[in-house]
Each structure stands twice: as structure tokens, then as C-alpha cells.
Design a binder for these strands. Structure first.
Length: 579
DNA sequence: GGTGCACCTG
DNA sequence: CAGGTGCACC
């Protein structure tokens, strides 16, 4: 006779369990009520909730800027940006568009400035030539366009500066002229701020649109393939589509990898960003007019170019300082510092968003990272919560360089064999996908060089995961059936509806111990729901004697395989999960 | 025939 | 967790 480890009370309905465990950081275990049913197809949990199974990235208070001093004048951003290029056609395109828009927005003022600007535009070519290479030419064009606007605006100011200077000479150094100069410069700064603000919004809007477009495309594909599988079915399908799409789309000269990179910025960080930005704007509105926009947040999106230092140093350096006026110099210096600081914040924010997104752990610190320098597991990195190890000590420049490099060339870190870290990651993925395809696995292990052997091994892993999962389900279901018989004296239908796998149950503890041994990952609610579905299916089958059929489990497998959820994008990153 | 699966075994 | 086996599917 089979022995069972635990009393049935652990499984049954009482919210206060017989053997509660406080090992798990779950502040709100949920008790789900299920309608009485004996039909497998009617079992609850089959219909997914869109957000279920995706733990909200824990927001960590922002620390000091990661790269702030790097972007001070004379810092290193140009070197970083040097890795990034845009193509000539894109630049031409954006220049053309820029001309048109500028004409409209500045009531012809710009035309005068543009006439003598061919040389300057060539300069800008060189500036843009080191802009980040990006597959979305339109997006790049828009960013570039706004940068050009700012630059052009400054150029326009030169004649006016000259006039002011001339007026000042006429007054023999009168203070009136200087004051006017400064006022004009201030106006220009305000304009610059507004334009940079617009740039910021464009970037994030573009990001948001890209993301929304992805989501819509996913939804569309799911519906097309859909049928009666419900949303969860669609979720499985979309998983495949995303996987294939990542590798099958048209050639974009390496930009494809960047597109993937941007897709890593999932909904939550965007939402967070927009919320924070709205709050900031609200604050500003309370303090004063829009003209008083603080530069915090300005250019935050543009910082993705990682090259704005070139603009700060190479462009703003010129016009104002040439005038030799102390006020102008101070102003220019202040402007440079402000812009430099803004750019620093840009990248810092991007990194922070990234780490927020990847910070899928609930509270525990991440472990050292396999592909990073030896100091990757330092406290700073832990604070940032990048369990994929994007941040780490070293110099800020290294940090950033490694970040950019990794995002563009994750395959550099590929390895043939599978490591214990990969196993841990696979186990965590099991919380979302019990039946991942080999293509899906390839997508989520970009640092693994897949061959037949490696693929088989990973498939085998998931097979073993499932085996353990189903064994536990059957075991606890049988125990529950037996307990029901002894407790109630007679079998009673519908008992399975009282079965649950709450976070305070023994079954949950066992599952968590197996797939999440270090307990550093918040088990998604969706996995609990799936477990409950499986448990009830087993219970039902055993209860009704269907287990006498040699193939009695097949039906259960068929149900469970439809309950796969998309694995969070954070898992697409190379590296090792927390230990 | 290749692949993926469950099942069994160690 | 991995190796072996048989089965089903394409």
C-alpha cells in the first residue's frame, strides 16, 4: 500500500492549514473558489487572466546614478556611442523631414538659418554617424530629427547673438545689452528644454507604440490561430510566434537584435515611467508654467543613443562660448553640465528600467553572474537587482560598454554545454511553461549554443520536470481521495473542488523546493492555478476510477499542456538566474 | 527517420 | 537527473 507523507488537511479547504509554512514570501495567499463540477473541460483555471503568471517587477528605490560622472564634459559617452552607427539613408531621410517640420514650426525663421547650414549639417552627419544603429529607421529618424532641431535652433541663435553683441558694443559694455543677451539665451534654453521634452516623449511614445504593436500583433496571431482554446491557448501560440519571429524576420543588419532588446522593455517599466513622468509634470504644473520644465527626465529616451555627449561637447561648446562674455560662458557651462547630467540620467533610467524589468525576484538578492566580471555580485549590483547581471563594479564606462555589447551581441557568450545555472533557469521557466518547444527554449537561452544533444538534454529536463510535477499531483490526489474516504466514511462527489495548492500548503512547498530551491523567485500565481487544475484532474480521475485505464493520464496531460503561459521576457536574457 | 513524449530504472 | 525504451506523429 502506498504511503503518504501528509495528512489530507494540508490539501483540503481550510484556509488555516494543518502544516503552514512561513518559508515563502507570500503575503496574500489566495483562496480560489471553484464551481462544483466533475467535468475536466469545465474545470476552473483553464481560462487565463492576462496578467496572471507574470510577477510584477519589484520596484526598487533608485540609487545614485550609475553613470553620472561618466557623462560629465570630457567623459566617455562618445566612445560608447562610437559603437553605434546609423546609415546614411536614414540621416538623409531625417534631414529632409527635419527641414519640413522646422519650417512649419518656426514660421520660416529657420529658413534663413538653413541656407548657410550645409556645412553644419555635414558636421551633424558626423555626429549622427555615431548614433546608435537601430533597425527601426523611423524611430531613429525621429530622434535624430529632434536633436537636429535643437542644434539648428542654437545655430539660429547665432545671428541674434551677434546682434546682441553688436548692440552691446554700441552701448560700450552697457549692462543692458548683457542682460538682454542672457535673457535671450534663457529663452533659447527654455526652447531647448521644450524640444528635448518633446524628444523624450517621442522616444517613449515610439517605444510604447512598438511594444503595443507587438502586443497587438501577438493578439492578432493568436486570434487567427485561436479556435476554441481560449486565451490560454492563444498564449501558447503566441509563445511560438514570438519565438519564430525573432529569428525569421527580414534581415536588418544586426538591428534585429536591437529590436529584440527594446522588446525587453515590457509593459510595467513603461507604465512606471509614464506614471512617474506624469507625476513629475503634474508637480511642475503646480510649481509654474511649462516653460519651467526641469531637465530631470528630459532626453531620457534620447539617451538610448548613448551618444548625446557628442552633442553636448561638440555642439553646445561652440556658439555661446565664442562670444567671450562671462555670462555667456557661465550659461554655456551650466547648460553643458545640465545636459550632461540629463544624459547621465537618461542612461541611468534606461538601466534602471531594465533592472526593474529583470528584477523578477521578490526580495532576495541576485547571485553572481556567470558571464560578467568577477565582481558582478557586489552590493551595488545586488541593489540594482539585475539578476541577469547586466550591472555589476568596474568603471562606469565598462558597465555601460558591457551593457551595450551584451544587448547587441548576446551570442558572444554562448556556450555548448548546459550549466547548473541553465538548469535553475529552466526550472523557473517551468513555472510558466510545462511544455516549451525547442524553439522556445532556444529563444530563452541565447547564451547556449544549441545542437541536437543540448536540445535533447533541455527537452529531457522539462520532461523530468513534468514527471515530478505529475507524480506529486497524483500522489496528493490519491492521498486526498483516501483521506476523503476515511474522514467522511463514504465517497462523496465534488470533493476536488475543495482542493487547492495555496502557498501555505505542503504541496506548494514541495513544488517550490523542487523548481525554486533557493526560494528567491516569486512563484507566479498562474503556476498555482495550473497546479490546482492538475490536482483536481487527478483527483477526479482517481475518484471516478478512470485510473484503471492504462492511458488515464493522457487526458490530464492534454489539459495541462494548454495552460502554458508566456515566459516573461526577462528570461530571454542570457545569464544565470539567482542561486 | 527524426522528434518528442511518457514511463521505467538507476 | 540521465539513460533506455516504446509509442505516436510528421
Amino acid at each position: 500500500m502506498q504511503k503518504y507523507l501528509l495528512p489530507a488537511g494540508d490539501l483540503f479547504c481550510s484556509p488555516v492549514m494543518d502544516s503552514p509554512t512561513d518559508l515563502f514570501d507570500d503575503s496574500a495567499p489566495q483562496m480560489h473558489t471553484f464551481a462544483p463540477t466533475h467535468s475536466s473541460t469545465d474545470l476552473p483555471g483553464v481560462h487565463p487572466q492576462p496578467s496572471a503568471g507574470r510577477p510584477a517587477p519589484a520596484f526598487r528605490p533608485s540609487g545614485f546614478p550609475l553613470i553620472h560622472h561618466l557623462l560629465q564634459p570630457g567623459g566617455a559617452p562618445r566612445r560608447i556611442g562610437g559603437q553605434l552607427n546609423t546609415n546614411l539613408n536614414t540621416r538623409r531621410h531625417l534631414e529632409d523631414r527635419n527641414l519640413e517640420e522646422d519650417r512649419g514650426e518656426r514660421n520660416g525663421q529657420v529658413e534663413q538659418g538653413m541656407e548657410g547650414e550645409e556645412g553644419v549639417m555635414k558636421e551633424e552627419d558626423s555626429l549622427l554617424g555615431v548614433k546608435k544603429r537601430h533597425s527601426d529607421a523611423t524611430l531613429v529618424a525621429e530622434w535624430s530629427q529632434d536633436i537636429l532641431k535643437v542644434k539648428r535652433m542654437k545655430l539660429e541663435s547665432r545671428p541674434r547673438d551677434g546682434e546682441a553683441e553688436e548692440g552691446g558694443r554700441r552701448r560700450e559694455g552697457g549692462r543692458e545689452g548683457k542682460r538682454k543677451e542672457r535673457e535671450e539665451l534663457k529663452e533659447q534654453l527654455e526652447e531647448a528644454r521644450e524640444r528635448l521634452q518633446a524628444l523624450q516623449e517621442k522616444v517613449w511614445r515610439a517605444f510604447g507604440e512598438n511594444h503595443m504593436a507587438e502586443e497587438e500583433e501577438k493578439t492578432r496571431r493568436c486570434r487567427n490561430r485561436g479556435g476554441d482554446g481560449g486565451e490560454r491557448d492563444a498564449g501558447m501560440m503566441e509563445e511560438e510566434d514570438v519565438t519564430e519571429g525573432m529569428y525569421d524576420e527580414e534581415d536588418i543588419d544586426g538591428g534585429e537584435m536591437e529590436k529584440e532588446t527594446f522588446s525587453l522593455l515590457s509593459v510595467s517599466p513603461f507604465d512606471n515611467f509614464h506614471k512617474q513622468r506624469e507625476e513629475r509634470q503634474k508637480d511642475r504644473g503646480e510649481r509654474g508654467s511649462g516653460g519651467g520644465l526641469h531637465l530631470e527626465g528630459v532626453m531620457e529616451g534620447a539617451g538610448l543613443w548613448l551618444d548625446c555627449g557628442g552633442l553636448v561637447r561638440g555642439d553646445w561648446h561652440g556658439g555661446i562660448e565664442d562670444e567671450g562674455e562671462e555670462g555667456g560662458q557661465k550659461f554655456a557651462q551650466a547648460l553643458k553640465l545640465e545636459l550632461g547630467s540629463a544624459v547621465a540620467r537618461v542612461i541611468d533610467r534606461v538601466l534602471r528600467l531594465y533592472t526593474e524589468m529583470t528584477d523578477v525576484t521578490s526580495s532576495s538578492p541576485p547571485a553572481a553572474i556567470s558571464f560578467l566580471p568577477a565582481d558582478a555580485g557586489n552590493d551595488e549590483g545586488r541593489e540594482k537587482g539585475a539578476w541577469m547581471g547586466l550591472l555589476t563594479r568596474g568603471t562606469d564606462e565598462e558597465k555601460i560598454r558591457g551593457y551595450v555589447y551584451l544587448l547587441n551581441w548576446p551570442h558572444v557568450y554562448t556556450q555548448e554545454g548546459l550549466s547548473p545555472c541553465h538548469l535553475k533557469k529552466a526550472k523557473l521557466m517551468f513555472f510558466y511553461a510545462r511544455y516549451p518547444s525547442s524553439n522556445t527554449l532556444k529563444t530563452y537561452f541565447p547564451d547556449v549554443k544549441f545542437n541536437r544533444c543540448v536540445t535533447s538534454q533541455m527537452i529531457k529536463w522539462f520532461s523530468n520536470f513534468r514527471e515530478f510535477f505529475y507524480i506529486q499531483m497524483e500522489r496528493f490526489a490519491r492521498q486526498a481521495v483516501r483521506e476523503a474516504l476515511t474522514r467522511d466514511g463514504a465517497p462523496r462527489l465534488g470533493r476536488e473542488n475543495q482542493m487547492r495548492v495555496g502557498r501555505d500548503t505542503e504541496l506548494y512547498r514541495i513544488l517550490n523546493m523542487h523548481y525554486n530551491k533557493s526560494n528567491v523567485y516569486q512563484v507566479p500565481e498562474r503556476f498555482i492555478e495550473v497546479s490546482e487544475v492538475a490536482l483536481r484532474e487527478f483527483y477526479s480521475a482517481i475518484w471516478t476510477g478512470r485510473d484503471s485505464d492504462p492511458c488515464w493520464k493522457k487526458g490530464i496531460y492534454k489539459i495541462i499542456c494548454k495552460l502554458d503561459s508566456p515566459v516573461p521576457d526577462a528570461f530571454r536574457l542570457p545569464g544565470c538566474p539567482v542561486g
